[in-house]
Design a binder for these strands. Sequence first.
RNA 1: GCGCUUAUAGCUCAGCAGGAUAGAGCGUUCGCCUCCUAAGCGAAAGGUCCCGCGUUCGAAUCGCGGUAGGCGCGCCA
Length: 562
Amino acid sequence: MNYIEQLAKTLEKKIGIPAEDIAGMLEVPADETMGDFALPCFKLAKTLKKAPPMIAADIAENLVLPEGFKEFKVIGAYLNFFIDPVNFIQNVISESALTGYGGSDEGQGKNICIDYSSINIAKPFHIGHIMSTAIGNALYRIYNYRGYTAIGINHLGDWGTQFGKLCYAYEAWGSKEDVETRNIDALLELYVKFHDEADKDDTLNDAARDWFKRIEDGDEYAVSLLDWFTNITLKRVEKVYDMLGVKFDYYTGERFYNDKMTPIVDELEDKGLLTESQGARVVNLDEYNMPPCIIIKNDGTTLYATRDLAAAFYRKKTFDFYKALYVVAYQQNLHFNQWFKVVGLMGYDWEKDLEHVNFGMVSLEDGTISTRKGRVVFLEDVLNKACEKTAEIIEIKNPALENKQAIAKQVGVGAVVFSVLSQGRIKDITFSWDRVLNFEGETGPYMQYTAVRCNSLLIRGKELLSETPDFSALDNDEAFKTAKALDKFPTAIENALNKNEPYLITRNIIDVAKAFNKFYFEHKIIDENKAASAARLALAKAVKNVITTGLYLIGVETPEKM
RNA sequence: GCGCUUAUAGCUCAGCAGGAUAGAGCGUUCGCCUCCUAAGCGAAAGGUCCCGCGUUCGAAUCGCGGUAGGCGCGCCA
Protein backbone atom coordinates (compact mmCIF):
# COMPACT_ATOMS: atom_id res chain seq x y z
CA MET A 1 0.00 0.00 0.00
CA ASN A 2 1.20 3.47 -0.81
CA TYR A 3 0.54 5.72 2.15
CA ILE A 4 1.04 8.99 0.34
CA GLU A 5 -1.27 8.01 -2.48
CA GLN A 6 -4.01 6.88 -0.10
CA LEU A 7 -3.68 9.97 2.02
CA ALA A 8 -3.66 12.29 -0.98
CA LYS A 9 -6.77 10.65 -2.34
CA THR A 10 -8.56 11.17 0.95
CA LEU A 11 -7.47 14.78 1.19
CA GLU A 12 -8.43 15.45 -2.42
CA LYS A 13 -12.11 15.37 -1.50
CA LYS A 14 -11.54 17.55 1.54
CA ILE A 15 -9.42 20.23 -0.09
CA GLY A 16 -10.66 20.15 -3.62
CA ILE A 17 -7.40 20.07 -5.48
CA PRO A 18 -5.99 17.06 -7.40
CA ALA A 19 -4.54 14.20 -5.40
CA GLU A 20 -1.34 14.38 -7.44
CA ASP A 21 -0.70 17.92 -6.29
CA ILE A 22 -1.42 17.02 -2.71
CA ALA A 23 0.93 14.07 -2.90
CA GLY A 24 3.64 16.52 -3.96
CA MET A 25 2.98 18.67 -0.92
CA LEU A 26 3.06 15.86 1.58
CA GLU A 27 6.35 15.38 3.31
CA VAL A 28 8.02 13.30 5.96
CA PRO A 29 8.78 15.37 9.06
CA ALA A 30 12.41 15.46 10.09
CA ASP A 31 11.35 14.85 13.65
CA GLU A 32 9.53 11.52 13.75
CA THR A 33 7.62 12.37 16.89
CA MET A 34 5.78 14.96 14.81
CA GLY A 35 4.26 12.28 12.66
CA ASP A 36 4.95 10.00 9.75
CA PHE A 37 3.61 12.35 7.11
CA ALA A 38 2.80 16.03 7.22
CA LEU A 39 0.94 18.53 5.13
CA PRO A 40 2.33 22.05 5.55
CA CYS A 41 -0.67 24.21 4.79
CA PHE A 42 1.34 27.28 3.80
CA LYS A 43 1.32 25.86 0.32
CA LEU A 44 -2.47 26.01 0.18
CA ALA A 45 -2.78 29.56 1.49
CA LYS A 46 -2.58 31.21 -1.91
CA THR A 47 -5.17 29.07 -3.67
CA LEU A 48 -7.56 28.85 -0.74
CA LYS A 49 -6.99 32.45 0.34
CA LYS A 50 -6.98 31.62 4.02
CA ALA A 51 -4.46 31.68 6.81
CA PRO A 52 -2.44 28.42 6.93
CA PRO A 53 -3.43 27.41 10.49
CA MET A 54 -7.08 27.93 9.56
CA ILE A 55 -6.70 25.70 6.55
CA ALA A 56 -5.18 22.99 8.71
CA ALA A 57 -8.05 23.24 11.15
CA ASP A 58 -10.64 23.19 8.38
CA ILE A 59 -9.20 20.10 6.77
CA ALA A 60 -9.01 18.40 10.13
CA GLU A 61 -12.67 18.83 10.78
CA ASN A 62 -14.53 15.55 10.33
CA LEU A 63 -11.52 14.09 8.54
CA VAL A 64 -11.70 10.33 8.16
CA LEU A 65 -8.29 8.77 7.59
CA PRO A 66 -7.69 5.98 5.08
CA GLU A 67 -6.78 2.49 6.15
CA GLY A 68 -3.34 2.08 7.66
CA PHE A 69 -3.48 5.44 9.37
CA LYS A 70 -3.93 5.76 13.09
CA GLU A 71 -4.48 9.41 13.83
CA PHE A 72 -3.71 12.99 12.89
CA LYS A 73 -2.86 16.15 14.77
CA VAL A 74 -2.98 19.80 13.91
CA ILE A 75 0.10 21.68 15.00
CA GLY A 76 0.05 25.27 13.84
CA ALA A 77 -0.12 25.26 10.08
CA TYR A 78 0.87 21.63 9.91
CA LEU A 79 -1.43 18.69 9.61
CA ASN A 80 0.45 15.68 10.92
CA PHE A 81 -0.50 12.10 10.19
CA PHE A 82 0.45 8.98 12.05
CA ILE A 83 0.35 5.56 10.50
CA ASP A 84 -0.43 2.30 12.25
CA PRO A 85 3.03 1.00 13.14
CA VAL A 86 2.31 -2.71 13.53
CA ASN A 87 0.65 -2.92 10.15
CA PHE A 88 3.54 -1.06 8.55
CA ILE A 89 6.24 -3.06 10.32
CA GLN A 90 4.67 -6.33 9.34
CA ASN A 91 4.48 -5.33 5.66
CA VAL A 92 8.01 -4.02 5.57
CA ILE A 93 9.44 -7.11 7.23
CA SER A 94 7.78 -9.49 4.86
CA GLU A 95 9.12 -7.58 1.85
CA SER A 96 12.58 -6.75 3.06
CA ALA A 97 13.41 -10.27 4.19
CA LEU A 98 13.08 -11.49 0.61
CA THR A 99 16.04 -12.22 -1.61
CA GLY A 100 16.33 -9.55 -4.25
CA TYR A 101 14.70 -6.86 -2.10
CA GLY A 102 15.29 -3.51 -3.76
CA GLY A 103 16.32 -5.15 -7.00
CA SER A 104 14.39 -4.98 -10.24
CA ASP A 105 14.50 -5.85 -13.90
CA GLU A 106 14.16 -2.27 -15.11
CA GLY A 107 17.46 -2.60 -16.93
CA GLN A 108 16.63 -5.75 -18.90
CA GLY A 109 18.54 -5.80 -22.15
CA LYS A 110 20.44 -2.62 -21.45
CA ASN A 111 24.22 -2.62 -21.41
CA ILE A 112 26.16 -0.29 -19.17
CA CYS A 113 29.86 0.08 -19.93
CA ILE A 114 31.76 1.00 -16.81
CA ASP A 115 35.34 2.12 -17.20
CA TYR A 116 37.01 1.94 -13.83
CA SER A 117 40.21 1.28 -11.91
CA SER A 118 42.19 1.75 -15.13
CA ILE A 119 45.64 1.22 -13.72
CA ASN A 120 48.92 2.04 -15.38
CA ILE A 121 51.28 -0.71 -16.42
CA ALA A 122 54.53 -0.83 -14.47
CA LYS A 123 53.17 1.53 -11.82
CA PRO A 124 52.24 0.53 -8.30
CA PHE A 125 48.63 0.21 -7.19
CA HIS A 126 48.43 2.89 -4.56
CA ILE A 127 45.77 4.26 -2.25
CA GLY A 128 44.72 6.81 -4.88
CA HIS A 129 43.41 3.99 -7.04
CA ILE A 130 40.93 2.82 -4.44
CA MET A 131 38.37 5.46 -5.40
CA SER A 132 37.88 4.49 -9.03
CA THR A 133 38.13 0.81 -8.19
CA ALA A 134 35.65 0.84 -5.32
CA ILE A 135 33.14 3.20 -6.94
CA GLY A 136 33.27 1.39 -10.26
CA ASN A 137 32.90 -2.00 -8.66
CA ALA A 138 29.93 -0.82 -6.61
CA LEU A 139 28.23 0.64 -9.67
CA TYR A 140 28.89 -2.59 -11.52
CA ARG A 141 27.01 -4.51 -8.85
CA ILE A 142 24.25 -1.96 -8.44
CA TYR A 143 23.44 -1.85 -12.15
CA ASN A 144 23.37 -5.63 -12.34
CA TYR A 145 21.06 -5.74 -9.33
CA ARG A 146 18.61 -3.52 -11.19
CA GLY A 147 18.60 -5.81 -14.20
CA TYR A 148 21.13 -4.03 -16.39
CA THR A 149 24.08 -5.82 -17.88
CA ALA A 150 27.15 -4.11 -16.55
CA ILE A 151 30.33 -4.44 -18.56
CA GLY A 152 33.43 -3.80 -16.48
CA ILE A 153 36.36 -2.41 -18.41
CA ASN A 154 39.82 -1.88 -17.00
CA HIS A 155 41.12 0.72 -19.41
CA LEU A 156 44.81 0.02 -18.89
CA GLY A 157 47.41 2.72 -19.25
CA ASP A 158 49.56 0.53 -21.43
CA TRP A 159 50.67 2.82 -24.23
CA GLY A 160 52.84 5.90 -24.58
CA THR A 161 56.41 7.13 -24.54
CA GLN A 162 56.84 6.15 -20.91
CA PHE A 163 57.12 2.57 -22.12
CA GLY A 164 59.94 3.61 -24.42
CA LYS A 165 61.65 4.99 -21.34
CA LEU A 166 61.05 1.79 -19.47
CA CYS A 167 62.44 -0.34 -22.29
CA TYR A 168 65.51 1.82 -22.48
CA ALA A 169 66.04 1.69 -18.73
CA TYR A 170 65.56 -2.04 -18.63
CA GLU A 171 68.07 -2.58 -21.41
CA ALA A 172 70.57 -0.24 -19.82
CA TRP A 173 70.34 -1.12 -16.14
CA GLY A 174 67.79 -3.86 -15.55
CA SER A 175 68.06 -7.59 -15.16
CA LYS A 176 65.55 -10.25 -16.01
CA GLU A 177 65.81 -11.96 -12.63
CA ASP A 178 65.29 -8.74 -10.73
CA VAL A 179 62.17 -7.84 -12.71
CA GLU A 180 60.83 -11.38 -12.38
CA THR A 181 61.19 -11.39 -8.62
CA ARG A 182 60.42 -7.83 -7.63
CA ASN A 183 58.19 -7.04 -10.64
CA ILE A 184 56.57 -3.62 -10.26
CA ASP A 185 59.02 -2.48 -7.62
CA ALA A 186 61.92 -3.17 -9.98
CA LEU A 187 60.15 -1.50 -12.90
CA LEU A 188 59.37 1.56 -10.87
CA GLU A 189 63.01 1.84 -9.82
CA LEU A 190 64.09 1.64 -13.44
CA TYR A 191 61.58 4.29 -14.39
CA VAL A 192 62.74 6.62 -11.64
CA LYS A 193 66.37 6.01 -12.56
CA PHE A 194 65.60 6.88 -16.17
CA HIS A 195 64.25 10.26 -15.15
CA ASP A 196 67.23 10.97 -12.94
CA GLU A 197 69.64 10.11 -15.71
CA ALA A 198 67.63 11.89 -18.38
CA ASP A 199 67.84 15.08 -16.34
CA LYS A 200 71.61 14.88 -16.80
CA ASP A 201 71.66 13.60 -20.35
CA ASP A 202 68.90 14.70 -22.67
CA THR A 203 69.83 12.19 -25.40
CA LEU A 204 68.19 9.50 -23.28
CA ASN A 205 64.81 10.98 -24.13
CA ASP A 206 65.55 10.56 -27.81
CA ALA A 207 66.59 6.99 -27.18
CA ALA A 208 63.35 6.38 -25.31
CA ARG A 209 61.36 7.80 -28.19
CA ASP A 210 63.17 5.42 -30.51
CA TRP A 211 62.21 2.54 -28.28
CA PHE A 212 58.60 3.55 -28.28
CA LYS A 213 58.75 3.91 -32.07
CA ARG A 214 59.95 0.31 -32.20
CA ILE A 215 56.91 -0.73 -30.16
CA GLU A 216 54.61 1.22 -32.45
CA ASP A 217 56.21 -0.31 -35.52
CA GLY A 218 55.63 -3.76 -34.11
CA ASP A 219 59.27 -4.65 -33.52
CA GLU A 220 59.07 -8.12 -32.07
CA TYR A 221 61.52 -7.68 -29.21
CA ALA A 222 60.22 -4.29 -28.13
CA VAL A 223 56.65 -5.53 -28.18
CA SER A 224 57.61 -8.60 -26.20
CA LEU A 225 59.08 -6.34 -23.51
CA LEU A 226 55.82 -4.39 -23.26
CA ASP A 227 53.86 -7.65 -23.13
CA TRP A 228 56.09 -8.85 -20.37
CA PHE A 229 55.76 -5.65 -18.34
CA THR A 230 52.01 -5.84 -18.81
CA ASN A 231 51.79 -9.43 -17.68
CA ILE A 232 53.83 -9.02 -14.55
CA THR A 233 51.88 -5.89 -13.62
CA LEU A 234 48.55 -7.62 -14.07
CA LYS A 235 49.71 -10.65 -12.11
CA ARG A 236 50.69 -8.45 -9.21
CA VAL A 237 47.57 -6.31 -9.35
CA GLU A 238 45.35 -9.36 -9.62
CA LYS A 239 46.14 -10.14 -5.98
CA VAL A 240 44.70 -6.81 -4.90
CA TYR A 241 41.63 -7.22 -7.08
CA ASP A 242 41.12 -10.66 -5.54
CA MET A 243 41.25 -9.23 -2.05
CA LEU A 244 38.74 -6.56 -3.03
CA GLY A 245 36.50 -9.00 -4.88
CA VAL A 246 36.73 -6.81 -7.98
CA LYS A 247 36.25 -8.31 -11.43
CA PHE A 248 36.51 -6.96 -14.95
CA ASP A 249 35.02 -8.27 -18.15
CA TYR A 250 37.74 -6.68 -20.26
CA TYR A 251 41.29 -5.54 -19.77
CA THR A 252 41.34 -3.50 -22.92
CA GLY A 253 43.70 -0.57 -22.56
CA GLU A 254 44.89 2.22 -24.73
CA ARG A 255 47.04 -0.14 -26.71
CA PHE A 256 43.93 -2.03 -27.77
CA TYR A 257 42.55 1.06 -29.47
CA ASN A 258 45.79 2.01 -31.14
CA ASP A 259 44.68 0.68 -34.50
CA LYS A 260 41.13 1.95 -34.16
CA MET A 261 41.73 5.67 -34.30
CA THR A 262 42.20 6.25 -38.03
CA PRO A 263 38.52 5.91 -38.98
CA ILE A 264 37.58 8.36 -36.25
CA VAL A 265 40.16 10.89 -37.37
CA ASP A 266 39.02 10.45 -40.97
CA GLU A 267 35.43 10.99 -39.98
CA LEU A 268 36.36 14.14 -38.11
CA GLU A 269 38.18 15.36 -41.23
CA ASP A 270 35.24 14.45 -43.48
CA LYS A 271 32.81 16.29 -41.29
CA GLY A 272 35.05 19.33 -41.36
CA LEU A 273 35.48 19.42 -37.61
CA LEU A 274 39.26 19.49 -37.57
CA THR A 275 41.14 22.72 -37.92
CA GLU A 276 44.83 23.49 -38.05
CA SER A 277 46.16 25.16 -34.91
CA GLN A 278 49.83 25.62 -34.14
CA GLY A 279 50.70 22.62 -36.26
CA ALA A 280 48.12 20.37 -34.56
CA ARG A 281 44.73 19.16 -35.73
CA VAL A 282 42.08 20.21 -33.26
CA VAL A 283 38.33 20.46 -32.82
CA ASN A 284 37.54 24.05 -31.96
CA LEU A 285 35.23 24.35 -28.96
CA ASP A 286 35.20 28.13 -28.48
CA GLU A 287 31.47 28.15 -28.95
CA TYR A 288 31.12 25.87 -25.92
CA ASN A 289 33.48 27.91 -23.80
CA MET A 290 36.14 25.24 -23.80
CA PRO A 291 39.68 25.12 -25.15
CA PRO A 292 40.13 23.08 -28.33
CA CYS A 293 40.24 19.33 -28.19
CA ILE A 294 43.54 18.22 -29.71
CA ILE A 295 43.17 15.17 -31.90
CA ILE A 296 46.53 15.03 -33.70
CA LYS A 297 49.74 16.48 -32.29
CA ASN A 298 52.04 18.59 -34.43
CA ASP A 299 54.33 15.59 -34.84
CA GLY A 300 51.46 13.63 -36.39
CA THR A 301 50.83 11.34 -33.43
CA THR A 302 47.64 10.94 -31.47
CA LEU A 303 46.90 11.53 -27.84
CA TYR A 304 44.50 10.38 -25.20
CA ALA A 305 41.42 12.24 -26.38
CA THR A 306 41.85 10.48 -29.72
CA ARG A 307 42.12 7.12 -28.00
CA ASP A 308 39.15 7.82 -25.73
CA LEU A 309 37.08 8.67 -28.79
CA ALA A 310 38.18 5.49 -30.51
CA ALA A 311 37.33 3.52 -27.37
CA ALA A 312 33.88 5.12 -27.11
CA PHE A 313 33.06 4.30 -30.73
CA TYR A 314 34.33 0.78 -30.28
CA ARG A 315 32.17 0.33 -27.18
CA LYS A 316 29.12 1.80 -28.87
CA LYS A 317 29.56 -0.55 -31.81
CA THR A 318 30.40 -3.62 -29.75
CA PHE A 319 28.01 -3.25 -26.81
CA ASP A 320 25.49 -0.69 -28.03
CA PHE A 321 25.59 0.70 -24.52
CA TYR A 322 22.64 2.34 -22.86
CA LYS A 323 25.14 4.32 -20.85
CA ALA A 324 28.93 4.48 -20.75
CA LEU A 325 30.36 5.51 -17.41
CA TYR A 326 33.90 6.74 -16.88
CA VAL A 327 34.90 6.48 -13.26
CA VAL A 328 37.81 8.87 -13.35
CA ALA A 329 39.02 11.61 -10.98
CA TYR A 330 37.62 15.13 -11.38
CA GLN A 331 41.00 16.36 -12.58
CA GLN A 332 39.87 15.17 -15.96
CA ASN A 333 36.56 17.05 -16.01
CA LEU A 334 37.61 19.24 -18.90
CA HIS A 335 39.00 16.35 -20.91
CA PHE A 336 35.77 14.41 -20.74
CA ASN A 337 33.62 17.46 -21.41
CA GLN A 338 35.72 18.16 -24.47
CA TRP A 339 35.58 14.81 -26.16
CA PHE A 340 31.96 14.16 -25.16
CA LYS A 341 31.17 17.38 -27.01
CA VAL A 342 33.20 16.18 -30.00
CA VAL A 343 30.98 13.09 -30.19
CA GLY A 344 27.96 15.39 -30.21
CA LEU A 345 29.45 17.59 -32.92
CA MET A 346 30.00 14.50 -35.04
CA GLY A 347 26.24 14.16 -34.95
CA TYR A 348 25.81 11.28 -32.56
CA ASP A 349 23.02 11.63 -30.05
CA TRP A 350 24.58 9.05 -27.75
CA GLU A 351 26.75 11.86 -26.49
CA LYS A 352 24.06 12.13 -23.80
CA ASP A 353 24.73 8.56 -22.71
CA LEU A 354 28.36 9.27 -21.90
CA GLU A 355 28.89 10.12 -18.30
CA HIS A 356 31.98 11.12 -16.38
CA VAL A 357 31.53 9.71 -12.90
CA ASN A 358 34.12 11.90 -11.24
CA PHE A 359 35.49 11.77 -7.74
CA GLY A 360 37.79 13.70 -5.42
CA MET A 361 41.49 13.42 -4.87
CA VAL A 362 43.22 11.24 -2.36
CA SER A 363 46.16 12.94 -0.76
CA LEU A 364 48.41 12.09 2.15
CA GLU A 365 48.83 14.09 5.32
CA ASP A 366 52.19 15.35 4.05
CA GLY A 367 50.97 16.27 0.59
CA THR A 368 49.82 14.89 -2.73
CA ILE A 369 50.74 11.39 -3.70
CA SER A 370 54.00 11.24 -5.60
CA THR A 371 55.39 7.84 -6.39
CA ARG A 372 58.65 9.27 -7.59
CA LYS A 373 59.16 11.28 -4.46
CA GLY A 374 58.38 8.28 -2.31
CA ARG A 375 55.24 9.97 -1.00
CA VAL A 376 52.94 7.04 -1.53
CA VAL A 377 50.85 4.52 0.36
CA PHE A 378 50.35 1.21 -1.39
CA LEU A 379 46.86 -0.19 -1.48
CA GLU A 380 48.15 -3.66 -0.76
CA ASP A 381 49.78 -2.39 2.44
CA VAL A 382 46.60 -0.67 3.55
CA LEU A 383 44.53 -3.80 2.99
CA ASN A 384 47.09 -6.02 4.69
CA LYS A 385 47.39 -3.75 7.67
CA ALA A 386 43.62 -3.56 8.03
CA CYS A 387 43.49 -7.36 8.00
CA GLU A 388 46.29 -7.63 10.57
CA LYS A 389 44.55 -5.23 12.88
CA THR A 390 41.31 -7.18 12.48
CA ALA A 391 43.11 -10.38 13.34
CA GLU A 392 44.41 -8.77 16.53
CA ILE A 393 40.93 -7.64 17.48
CA ILE A 394 39.55 -11.12 16.86
CA GLU A 395 42.18 -12.54 19.22
CA ILE A 396 40.90 -10.23 21.91
CA LYS A 397 37.17 -10.41 21.30
CA ASN A 398 36.55 -13.84 19.93
CA PRO A 399 39.64 -16.06 20.13
CA ALA A 400 37.60 -19.25 19.62
CA LEU A 401 36.37 -18.10 16.22
CA GLU A 402 36.85 -20.50 13.32
CA ASN A 403 38.37 -19.41 10.00
CA LYS A 404 39.91 -16.41 11.70
CA GLN A 405 42.08 -15.54 8.76
CA ALA A 406 39.29 -15.55 6.18
CA ILE A 407 37.08 -13.46 8.46
CA ALA A 408 39.90 -11.04 9.23
CA LYS A 409 40.20 -10.52 5.49
CA GLN A 410 36.49 -9.90 5.03
CA VAL A 411 36.38 -7.45 7.89
CA GLY A 412 39.68 -5.71 7.23
CA VAL A 413 39.17 -5.22 3.51
CA GLY A 414 35.53 -4.38 4.10
CA ALA A 415 36.51 -1.62 6.51
CA VAL A 416 38.68 0.05 3.86
CA VAL A 417 36.11 -0.19 1.07
CA PHE A 418 33.28 0.88 3.34
CA SER A 419 35.10 4.00 4.47
CA VAL A 420 35.71 5.02 0.85
CA LEU A 421 32.07 4.49 -0.05
CA SER A 422 30.53 6.14 2.98
CA GLN A 423 30.74 9.67 1.65
CA GLY A 424 29.89 11.49 -1.56
CA ARG A 425 32.27 10.90 -4.48
CA ILE A 426 33.26 14.48 -4.98
CA LYS A 427 34.89 14.97 -1.58
CA ASP A 428 38.66 14.98 -1.46
CA ILE A 429 40.11 12.50 0.97
CA THR A 430 43.22 12.92 3.06
CA PHE A 431 44.39 9.42 3.77
CA SER A 432 44.85 8.69 7.46
CA TRP A 433 45.89 5.39 8.95
CA ASP A 434 43.97 6.21 12.12
CA ARG A 435 40.79 6.69 10.19
CA VAL A 436 40.92 3.59 8.00
CA LEU A 437 41.96 1.47 10.96
CA ASN A 438 39.15 2.70 13.18
CA PHE A 439 36.54 -0.01 13.48
CA GLU A 440 34.10 1.72 15.79
CA GLY A 441 31.06 3.79 15.02
CA GLU A 442 29.71 4.03 11.48
CA THR A 443 32.21 1.66 9.91
CA GLY A 444 32.26 -1.51 7.85
CA PRO A 445 32.91 -3.74 10.85
CA TYR A 446 29.96 -2.15 12.63
CA MET A 447 27.71 -3.15 9.73
CA GLN A 448 29.12 -6.64 9.61
CA TYR A 449 28.86 -6.95 13.36
CA THR A 450 25.19 -6.03 13.22
CA ALA A 451 24.50 -8.60 10.50
CA VAL A 452 26.45 -11.22 12.46
CA ARG A 453 24.46 -10.36 15.55
CA CYS A 454 21.25 -10.99 13.61
CA ASN A 455 22.70 -14.19 12.27
CA SER A 456 23.52 -15.58 15.67
CA LEU A 457 20.03 -14.72 16.88
CA LEU A 458 18.57 -16.60 13.94
CA ILE A 459 20.71 -19.62 14.70
CA ARG A 460 19.79 -19.52 18.34
CA GLY A 461 16.10 -19.16 17.58
CA LYS A 462 16.01 -21.59 14.65
CA GLU A 463 13.02 -23.56 15.81
CA LEU A 464 11.00 -20.40 16.43
CA LEU A 465 10.98 -19.48 12.76
CA SER A 466 8.12 -21.89 12.11
CA GLU A 467 5.93 -20.16 14.69
CA THR A 468 3.27 -17.71 13.53
CA PRO A 469 4.76 -14.36 14.50
CA ASP A 470 2.83 -11.98 16.69
CA PHE A 471 3.77 -8.66 15.15
CA SER A 472 2.09 -6.69 17.89
CA ALA A 473 5.24 -7.50 19.85
CA LEU A 474 6.95 -4.98 17.56
CA ASP A 475 4.73 -2.11 18.61
CA ASN A 476 7.57 0.07 19.81
CA ASP A 477 9.64 3.00 18.58
CA GLU A 478 12.78 0.97 18.00
CA ALA A 479 11.12 -1.58 15.73
CA PHE A 480 9.22 1.19 13.97
CA LYS A 481 12.40 3.10 13.23
CA THR A 482 14.14 -0.03 12.04
CA ALA A 483 11.27 -0.80 9.70
CA LYS A 484 11.32 2.74 8.34
CA ALA A 485 15.00 2.38 7.51
CA LEU A 486 14.39 -1.01 5.88
CA ASP A 487 11.58 0.50 3.88
CA LYS A 488 13.90 3.10 2.36
CA PHE A 489 16.39 0.56 1.04
CA PRO A 490 14.89 0.20 -2.47
CA THR A 491 14.74 3.98 -2.89
CA ALA A 492 18.34 4.23 -1.73
CA ILE A 493 19.40 1.78 -4.43
CA GLU A 494 17.42 3.64 -7.05
CA ASN A 495 18.99 6.96 -6.09
CA ALA A 496 22.44 5.41 -5.92
CA LEU A 497 22.02 4.21 -9.48
CA ASN A 498 20.52 7.41 -10.86
CA LYS A 499 23.20 9.56 -9.31
CA ASN A 500 26.00 7.01 -9.57
CA GLU A 501 26.53 7.51 -5.85
CA PRO A 502 27.06 4.23 -4.00
CA TYR A 503 27.26 6.02 -0.64
CA LEU A 504 23.51 6.50 -0.69
CA ILE A 505 23.22 2.76 -0.08
CA THR A 506 25.89 2.91 2.58
CA ARG A 507 24.01 5.65 4.44
CA ASN A 508 20.79 3.70 4.35
CA ILE A 509 22.21 0.52 5.79
CA ILE A 510 23.95 2.53 8.49
CA ASP A 511 20.50 3.77 9.48
CA VAL A 512 19.20 0.20 9.49
CA ALA A 513 22.05 -1.00 11.68
CA LYS A 514 21.76 1.85 14.15
CA ALA A 515 18.03 1.43 14.52
CA PHE A 516 18.30 -2.30 14.94
CA ASN A 517 21.13 -2.13 17.49
CA LYS A 518 19.01 0.17 19.54
CA PHE A 519 16.10 -2.25 19.24
CA TYR A 520 18.38 -5.09 20.27
CA PHE A 521 19.54 -3.20 23.31
CA GLU A 522 16.05 -2.27 24.44
CA HIS A 523 14.26 -5.55 23.77
CA LYS A 524 15.09 -9.11 24.50
CA ILE A 525 14.66 -10.92 21.20
CA ILE A 526 14.19 -14.48 22.32
CA ASP A 527 12.07 -15.10 25.38
CA GLU A 528 9.30 -17.45 26.60
CA ASN A 529 6.70 -15.90 24.30
CA LYS A 530 7.24 -17.87 21.12
CA ALA A 531 4.98 -15.86 18.83
CA ALA A 532 6.49 -12.59 19.99
CA SER A 533 10.00 -13.98 19.66
CA ALA A 534 9.21 -15.12 16.15
CA ALA A 535 8.18 -11.57 15.24
CA ARG A 536 11.39 -10.12 16.65
CA LEU A 537 13.41 -12.75 14.83
CA ALA A 538 11.61 -11.88 11.61
CA LEU A 539 12.85 -8.34 12.06
CA ALA A 540 16.38 -9.62 12.65
CA LYS A 541 16.14 -11.68 9.50
CA ALA A 542 15.07 -8.67 7.44
CA VAL A 543 17.86 -6.57 8.92
CA LYS A 544 20.42 -9.22 8.13
CA ASN A 545 19.16 -9.48 4.56
CA VAL A 546 19.22 -5.76 3.93
CA ILE A 547 22.64 -5.19 5.47
CA THR A 548 24.14 -8.15 3.64
CA THR A 549 22.62 -7.06 0.35
CA GLY A 550 23.63 -3.45 0.86
CA LEU A 551 27.18 -4.40 1.72
CA TYR A 552 27.31 -6.70 -1.28
CA LEU A 553 26.21 -3.85 -3.52
CA ILE A 554 29.05 -1.65 -2.35
CA GLY A 555 31.51 -4.50 -2.67
CA VAL A 556 31.81 -5.63 0.93
CA GLU A 557 31.40 -9.19 2.15
CA THR A 558 29.49 -10.16 5.27
CA PRO A 559 30.82 -12.95 7.46
CA GLU A 560 28.49 -15.37 9.24
CA LYS A 561 30.40 -14.91 12.47
CA MET A 562 33.03 -12.56 13.75
C1' G B 1 42.91 35.74 -15.78
C1' C B 2 39.03 32.00 -17.25
C1' G B 3 36.33 27.34 -16.18
C1' C B 4 34.82 23.39 -12.81
C1' U B 5 34.35 22.25 -7.73
C1' U B 6 34.25 22.43 -2.28
C1' A B 7 32.94 25.35 2.36
C1' U B 8 27.76 22.72 8.06
C1' A B 9 30.34 20.91 15.67
C1' G B 10 37.61 20.35 17.56
C1' C B 11 38.12 16.34 13.23
C1' U B 12 35.51 13.43 9.15
C1' C B 13 30.96 13.93 6.98
C1' A B 14 25.13 13.61 6.24
C1' G B 15 21.18 16.96 5.29
C1' C B 16 20.49 20.94 -0.16
C1' A B 17 13.54 18.84 -6.26
C1' G B 18 12.87 25.28 0.31
C1' G B 19 9.36 23.61 5.74
C1' A B 20 8.64 22.71 12.39
C1' U B 21 14.09 23.02 17.65
C1' A B 22 20.37 21.83 11.84
C1' G B 23 22.02 15.72 12.47
C1' A B 24 25.63 11.44 12.74
C1' G B 25 30.40 9.19 13.57
C1' C B 26 35.20 10.10 15.60
C1' G B 27 37.59 12.67 19.58
C1' U B 28 36.63 14.58 24.92
C1' U B 29 33.93 13.74 29.79
C1' C B 30 30.62 10.32 32.13
C1' G B 31 27.31 5.95 32.51
C1' C B 32 25.53 0.56 30.92
C1' C B 33 27.93 -6.66 30.34
C1' U B 34 25.59 -12.58 36.87
C1' C B 35 21.24 -11.72 30.87
C1' C B 36 20.50 -13.32 23.03
C1' U B 37 28.35 -11.29 20.45
C1' A B 38 30.18 -4.39 24.54
C1' A B 39 33.38 -4.23 16.96
C1' G B 40 27.30 -2.71 21.09
C1' C B 41 23.76 1.04 23.76
C1' G B 42 23.15 5.75 26.26
C1' A B 43 24.16 10.87 28.50
C1' A B 44 26.86 15.54 28.52
C1' A B 45 29.69 19.27 26.16
C1' G B 46 30.40 21.18 21.33
C1' G B 47 27.15 25.57 15.64
C1' U B 48 28.02 33.10 12.69
C1' C B 49 25.43 26.10 8.28
C1' C B 50 32.21 30.94 4.86
C1' C B 51 30.35 36.40 4.14
C1' G B 52 26.74 39.87 1.92
C1' C B 53 22.44 40.94 -0.88
C1' G B 54 18.08 39.02 -3.13
C1' U B 55 13.59 35.61 -4.08
C1' U B 56 9.86 33.52 -0.55
C1' C B 57 4.80 33.08 4.35
C1' G B 58 9.50 30.32 5.26
C1' A B 59 16.61 29.67 3.04
C1' A B 60 22.01 25.37 5.38
C1' U B 61 19.04 24.25 0.84
C1' C B 62 17.23 28.54 -4.68
C1' G B 63 19.54 33.24 -7.45
C1' C B 64 23.34 37.03 -7.77
C1' G B 65 27.96 39.07 -5.86
C1' G B 66 32.16 38.16 -2.88
C1' U B 67 36.00 35.32 0.27
C1' A B 68 38.94 30.94 1.08
C1' G B 69 40.70 25.95 -0.40
C1' G B 70 41.11 22.02 -4.34
C1' C B 71 41.40 20.85 -9.58
C1' G B 72 41.92 22.15 -14.62
C1' C B 73 43.07 25.49 -18.74
C1' G B 74 47.26 22.24 -26.47
C1' C B 75 50.54 18.84 -28.10
C1' C B 76 51.48 13.73 -20.70
C1' A B 77 47.51 10.50 -19.30
